[in-house]
Design a protein around this nucleic acid. Structure first.
Lengths: 361, 361
DNA sequence: TCAAATCGTGTAATCGGTTACATGGCACAG
DNA sequence: CTGTGCCATGTAACCGATTACACGATTTGA
């Protein structure tokens, strides 16, 4: 048997569909008596409103779309969690769409969201503003998180990857490292490129020769890249990794090879995924409050939607919010008493607040 | 300006809406000439079909709902990833709904999915079949993953938590442990209770006194529970944790207290989340191929939908698939050469295949 | 040459809600 | 007694697509 519709309820309660709709949505004027009758009928027929139909007539879906390049790993997990929390608070559902390796795929995903969502958060490290503009249908509210490509015409949140990378290198320099290698994220990824650029700039300023191998942001590639570094002729006493997962892979590779961290080589990651505090040695990294950032993105999306709904066109939100990563120092760069590596005198004199090893239990 | 509708396209191309629909959906007979004209008009107007409207008339949303108790941590992250992969393959979108702490919340979430999805995967360790039945609207296809409460009337996938827990205890016994504690998951959680039951049963069979402290499945509670164990009078030489995150918390607590693992205490987790292979010592655990299981659940949901759509009612899928966890032995229970803890002669004679420490790079 | 089959296209009903407007009953004021 | 207004309720248009069916034109066969 097919599920009951509003018409079935109306017939059962001997009223019109309008009254049923009014009774169920509370707002309008309905006699207490008829309301009760309607509610009883709805109960009897196990009536559940058809959200799709409601969306069509109200043009509100109460659903938000999240376009992600991938669903793998802690970073996206945390991000989704933060967004879900915020969405829940505002009464929205979340429809997630991962695995958009190319800009084309992302564009298709965006178009397919039409009529399904009230707004989008687009996190697409490959897509540039041009592609995005073509993909955008009409005036669907959007918050961009496509790292690096700050688009002043749309509300967006970007991480200061460049500055974060510089801070990472600076921290390694402060710790006494002179030969600092970089395990970069995949070429074509805007975040990866910004971090690489920050690394190169900081190295140039310090008058040091850069040393880069390319990974793909996954743990496995960090492992391989570290092995490649060890096999190469060139010495190194510090590694700045494009993200935490690669850093963790590198840590394991060093352990396997008997290279001590931080004594023989200091390692810095990026992101501060939850696991970074749980590995040994604890990973020094640049903290992005991931869940918090996701929550923030979603909140901005919601206010944008509310503004649009209120007919406000006057002050469109086109702010580009910058998230500044915060250096979190853990054992992977903090030499203990019995250190063998010489420092230049500033063992932990950094601007960021030093953090305990397991701050997020 | 509002986005173009199919009627706008029809007007622009000087044809009827029916022709536009036919041209865009490919299938039906349309002259090459008119098709071309329609496509050009659609392009000119930047027409994007309204999925919601399409869903209403076709009664297919191409979207699946996932009801989760929580979005926190690696387990759900992996599960969602596996589901997303499978969904993508079959051309479905995913709408996720997390944070349903109580059965009521889950029931509400399920109802609100009506008209939004073509089917549901419900993962709700609190909800029992009765609650679920009332929440279910009509004949919406569902795959249950509400651990422990095998419901023979609906297709479901359950993990053999009981058997897995017994295997964990057995492995500790084989390694020579006699005083095995259990850090349990939260009461009321069916998975947690099944694992606890398996632990109790195995201990009883071995003629050993059980020793249980309750956690909440999060890393922090594993940390605290381990501290509580150390503070208590009772000795212990092995700990079976209700899941990996608590085990990792416990490992850290032991490290901080100077208790060596596996020499002083052996630790076993449950789930084999990706991080389990990355901590030191590597965590011995019971592997559930999480992403694989998610993918499997989704695939069964899809075939159920396809069967329903094909009008097949004859052989409804009511199988209850059981996932048997596989013991993965890592350093947290595998004493190295210089072990101080005596074994009873079977250092690693287990049925499961021994795994390398970092198998999933 | 005329009937039937074929084919491309248009008309309108439909999906399940919401809501502007119409309607009819009742109370109250003149 | 009648006109005005209010209020609960009903009627029907609408959201934007799909699709059964109707229709007219062309092709085919007798």
């Amino acid at each position: 048997m097919k599920p009951a519709t509003i018409r079935d309820v109306a017939r059962h309660a001997q009223v019109s569909v309008a009254s049923v709709s009014r009774a169920l949505n509370g707002s309008d004027t309905v006699t207490e008596q008829t309301r009760k009758r309607i509610l009883m009928s709805a109960e009897a027929l196990q009536y559940v409103p058809h959200s799709g139909a409601r969306s069509l007539s109200t043009s509100k879906t109460n659903t938000l779309g999240i376009i992600l390049p991938d669903l793998y790993g802690e970073f996206f997990s945390e991000l989704i969690r933060g967004m879900d929390l915020a969405a829940r608070e505002h009464g929205y559902h979340l429809i997630v769409s991962g695995s958009h390796d190319d800009a084309d795929g992302a564009a298709t995903a965006i178009r397919s969201m039409r009529g399904r969502v009230d707004g989008l958060v687009v996190l697409s490290p490959q897509i540039d503003s041009a592609n995005l503009a073509t993909a955008m249908t009409g005036r669907l509210p959007v918050v961009l998180m496509n790292g690096g490509a700050a688009d002043a015409t749309r509300p967006s949140i970007v991480v200061d990857n460049h500055g974060g990378a510089r801070a990472a290198v600076q921290h390694l320099l402060d710790g006494g490292c002179r030969d600092i290698a970089h395990i970069a994220g995949p070429a074509g990824n805007l975040e990866a490129e910004a971090r690489l650029a920050g690394y190169l700039e900081a190295m140039a300023e310090a008058g040091l020769e850069p040393h880069v191998v390319e990974g793909d942001f996954n743990q496995g590639s960090g492992h391989e890249s570290a092995q490649a570094l060890m096999k190469a002729d060139r010495r190194f006493d510090g590694v700045f990794c494009g993200n935490d997962m690669m850093a963790i892979g590198a840590l394991l590779a060093f352990q396997e090879a008997g290279v001590r961290c931080p004594e023989d080589v200091a390692v810095v990651g990026f992101d501060d995924v939850p696991i970074a505090a749980l590995v040994r040695p604890g990973l020094t990294t640049l903290r992005i409050r991931i869940a918090e950032t996701g929550r923030r993105a979603l909140q901005r999306l919601v206010s944008q939607i509310q503004a649009a709904h209120a007919g406000r066109v006057s002050d469109p939100d086109t702010t580009c919010e910058v998230v500044r990563p915060e250096l979190v120092i853990r054992s992977s760069t903090r030499a203990t008493a019995s250190t063998t590596r010489a420092t230049d005198g500033r063992p932990s004199g950094v601007t960021a607040s030093a953090q305990g090893e397991n701050q997020d239990g």
